[in-house]
């Protein structure tokens, strides 16, 4: 048996062409950085008959920010570019922080953020961070474009809203959501592993109270998830040790963790509480209101 099963290989030169080919060639898969796909193909767990390379489409790797329209990240932006982007660090620091926590430097340079979201592993750092940042995803097929909040994109482990003929063409974050401080807390077994659990938060403070907090979790449910009830507890609250502890406990109740070889469900739930508390405290401190222990 060949090491990797044979496939047809196509290089798309435009989004329209990639969408047309996805419809034309049943069994075709989008090929971005290729990390997740190549592992599956080497292990004969998934054997697409056709790969459509989208790295040959110009412009899909751009990171653009405009004070009026906000942030737009192309699906081919590499994790390391997000980690190193001065623009992102200035306006959406949660994204730069989380991107820097992904894997090792070579993997951050090879893997695309669009590929990591589309692969939809529950343990995806950038999914948690983009949920906390309030991102929206742009999906395109030959029929047109649709946009949805990122937390609605994930349906189950490795299952998303993406139809077989759809391409993720962009990630955007509104201008109103710029400037929020945040924190990404990740528990892992060594310096480069995927999260056992990760908690991402952003906060907006006004006159000493939390106008809004957003909380995203990775590896705490079958999909990356948002914690609406924990966020509701913080809305309008003063950021105190007590309010943060209560929200962290609520996030742990909202989590739907599973047991696997990295950790038990029970341990994961406890760690959501610990990491949510740390992340909220750090985000509030970064916004200029450190909370005494």
């Amino acid at each position: 048996m060949a090491r990797v099963r044979e496939f047809q290989y196509l290089e798309a030169t435009s989004v329209e062409e990639a969408c047309a080919w996805l419809r034309e060639y049943g069994g075709a898969k989008v090929f971005a950085g290729g990390l997740a796909l190549t592992i599956l193909m080497k292990q004969h767990l998934f054997e697409p008959t056709c790969l459509i390379n989208i790295k040959t489409i110009p412009g899909l790797d751009r990171i653009d920010y405009d004070a009026a329209t906000g942030l737009r990240i192309g699906p081919l932006a590499r994790h390391q570019w997000i980690a190193e982007s001065a623009t992102i660090a200035a306006h959406y620091p949660i994204l730069a922080e989380a991107a820097g926590h992904v894997a090792s430097l070579p993997i951050r340079r090879m893997g695309t953020v669009g590929g990591s979201l589309s692969h939809a592993d529950p343990a995806t750092d950038m999914a948690a961070a983009l949920i906390a940042a309030g991102a929206r995803l742009h999906l395109r097929s030959s029929d047109g474009e649709r946009t949805l909040p990122i937390e609605e994109f994930f349906l189950d482990a490795h299952e998303t809203q993406l139809q077989p003929d759809e391409l993720l063409t962009g990630i955007s974050v509104a201008a109103e959501l710029a400037g929020r401080s945040g924190a990404h807390e990740k528990l892992r077994k060594n310096a480069t592993d995927i999260p056992i659990v990760a908690v991402s938060v952003t906060v907006a403070l006004q006159d000493g109270v939390l106008r809004e907090a957003r909380i995203g979790l990775a590896a705490a449910a079958p999909t990356p998830m948002r914690c609406p009830a924990a966020e509701a507890l913080l809305r309008g609250a003063a950021p105190t040790a007590a309010s943060i502890a209560a929200a962290a406990a609520q996030a742990a109740r909202e989590a739907r963790p599973i047991s696997d070889l990295r950790a038990s469900a029970d341990y994961r739930r406890k760690m959501v509480r610990v990491l949510a508390r740390r992340a909220l405290r750090r985000a509030v401190a970064a916004a200029g209101l450190p909370i005494p222990e």
Partner: peptide
Amino acid sequence: VGECGSCTVLLDGAAVRSCLL
């Protein structure tokens, strides 16, 4: 599977995993 780095080569000067390329 990209975890260990023993297959590292430089591609245009940057370290990459040749086992996943």
